[in-house]
Simulated assay, not measured.
Amino acid sequence: MKTTAALPPSSPPAAAGVGALLREWRDRRRISQLELALRADSSARHISFIETGRSRPSQEMVLRLAEHLDVPVRERNALLIAAGYAPTYPETPLDDPSMEALRSGIQRLLTGYEPFPALVVDGTYNVQAANRGITALLEGVDESLLQPPLNAMRITMHPGGLAPRIRNYLEWRGHLLDQMERQLALLRSAPLRTLYEEVSGYPLPEGGRESAAAGDHAPFALPMLLEHHGTVLSFISTITTFNTPMDVTVSELAVETLLPADPETAAHLRTLTQL
């Protein structure tokens, strides 16, 4: 068991910032000090000292606690900085030469999903890559929304985007906003907050959209019902992230796939992409 001695009373509190942040994460995860101590091979007393600023955690301890609290990678760097250490996880631009293998792998993955639509977004839903299935669905979207950087939330919820063609728009909009709210509860991301405030303020498409009847739903998940060339397509969305990422950029990438919820949608997609 590894512990750090408390500072003498005359010394200023050590790393009080990181202690408060760790306590906040522990409260979010609804884990007691004792439970966290057992998971991290420490003691409840030491955890208490860290949280109150009476003890400065080592870099190893900060990372160990962050792992057991399932803290996002970007926020782990924030914990390290608050404790007086340098960030451990780099944030490498996706277009950096060192990311070539990752970019190639992502593109092969997206191509493999065709004719089904699939795309990769970053932590603020900017589209980093997409396949032909996505391109086919964007016909008719306002050109201003298709200028880089493309943003999946804007394209979906903007009145000039896909919103007017989503048959169950009210439900789908609610699902997307809930998803963003869950992320905001975990990340101190000003850009994501700004995006949320923007898209949540969009007016409903002209005439609005009624929610689809419950009987129209796939039994296992909420579908997105999208009108395309007079045909209503039904999609189930799946999201995949990278396991054990060691880079902030990679940790925030997500692959979203729109799988057909019925045979008619699958057949329509094959026709669109001529596969």
Rank of each mutant, 00 (worst) to 15 (best):
P12T: 03
A14N: 04
A16F: 08
S10V: 00
S10D: 14
L34W: 10
L21C: 08
A20S: 11
P12S: 08
R29K: 15
R26C: 01
L22P: 02
G17E: 02
L36I: 02
R28M: 15
A20Y: 10
L34G: 11
G19R: 01
E24H: 12
I31W: 10
S32G: 12
I31N: 04
P12V: 00
L38R: 13
P13H: 11
A16I: 00
R28D: 13
E24K: 12
E24C: 10
P12D: 06
Q33G: 12
A20F: 05
L34Q: 10
R29L: 13
A14D: 01
E24S: 11
R29P: 09
A14M: 03
W25P: 01
A20T: 08
A37E: 01
A15E: 06
A15N: 06
E24N: 11
R30S: 15
L38K: 13
A16Q: 05
S10H: 14
L34C: 09
A20D: 01
G17V: 02
S10G: 10
G17I: 07
L21P: 03
R39M: 08
R23G: 03
R23N: 00
L21D: 00
L36F: 09
D27P: 09
S11C: 09
A14F: 06
W25R: 05
R28H: 14
G17Q: 00
L22N: 09
A15C: 12
G19T: 09
R28N: 13
A14T: 04
A37L: 03
P12K: 06
L36H: 01
S10W: 11
R23Y: 03
A14L: 03
A20G: 05
A37Y: 09
L34K: 07
